[in-house]
Simulated scan of single mutants.
Amino acid sequence: MASFLTKCLLDFFVAFGVVLGGTMLAGICAVITLDPPVHRMETVAEQIKIWAMVAAIGGTIDPIRAIETHFHDGHISPAIQQILYIVCAFVGAHMGTSLIKWICGTGAAP
């Protein structure tokens, strides 16, 4: 159980960090290129969200294949764990995007 929670937290924070780090670096790039950083940061935060999830769950199709294999073999628990890992990565990426929107002043306060 501890390794499951550890993996969930790791997926959450990796996805959160990918969105936050990528967006902040895009903001720095916007300043260097004299673009409005707020607009660039919001755009990148939305575009990078799915890639943050992919990076958090391993970057391959293996988690989806694991879900299929476990359901096919009748083992529900490992498939549910994989789904929960994906959900944790989504929540991390979404919270990162929401934080960026809040920082930029276009989103509601969390």
Rank of each mutant, 00 (worst) to 15 (best):
G92R: 00
L5T: 06
F16W: 03
L25W: 03
T60D: 04
P63I: 05
S3A: 03
A52K: 02
L5W: 06
L34P: 02
A108D: 13
T43C: 09
L20P: 01
C88G: 04
M53C: 14
F4P: 00
L99K: 01
G17M: 02
L34D: 13
P110A: 00
G74T: 03
G27P: 04
V19I: 12
I57E: 08
G22H: 00
L25V: 07
A45D: 05
A108W: 02
A26V: 03
I64Y: 11
T69E: 15
H75W: 06
G59I: 01
A89H: 05
I61P: 06
I100W: 02
I100Y: 10
I86S: 13
A66H: 08
I32Y: 13
Q81F: 14
V44R: 04
T97Y: 15
K101T: 03
I64F: 13
T106D: 07
H72A: 15
I28A: 13
V19T: 04
I83E: 08
G59F: 08
P78V: 03
Y85L: 15
I76S: 13
L84A: 13
V91C: 11
I67A: 04
D62M: 14
M41G: 08
T97E: 10
I100H: 05
I86G: 15
I28C: 08
T43A: 14
C88V: 03
S77K: 13
A79G: 15
M1K: 07
L9A: 12
A15S: 15
D73V: 06
A30K: 00
T97A: 10
V87S: 07
F71R: 06
I64H: 07
T6M: 10
A108H: 06
A30S: 14
T97W: 08
I103Y: 15
W102E: 01
T6K: 10
V19Q: 05
A26G: 08
V18P: 02
F71G: 01
V31R: 03
M53T: 10
E68A: 10
A56M: 05
A45V: 06
H39S: 14
Q81M: 11
A93R: 00
Q81W: 12
E68I: 14
E42T: 13
D73E: 12
L9Y: 10
I86Y: 08
T69V: 14
T23N: 00
I48S: 04
A30L: 05
A2D: 09
A108I: 00
T33M: 13
W51N: 05
M24E: 06
P78K: 09
L20W: 05
T43M: 14
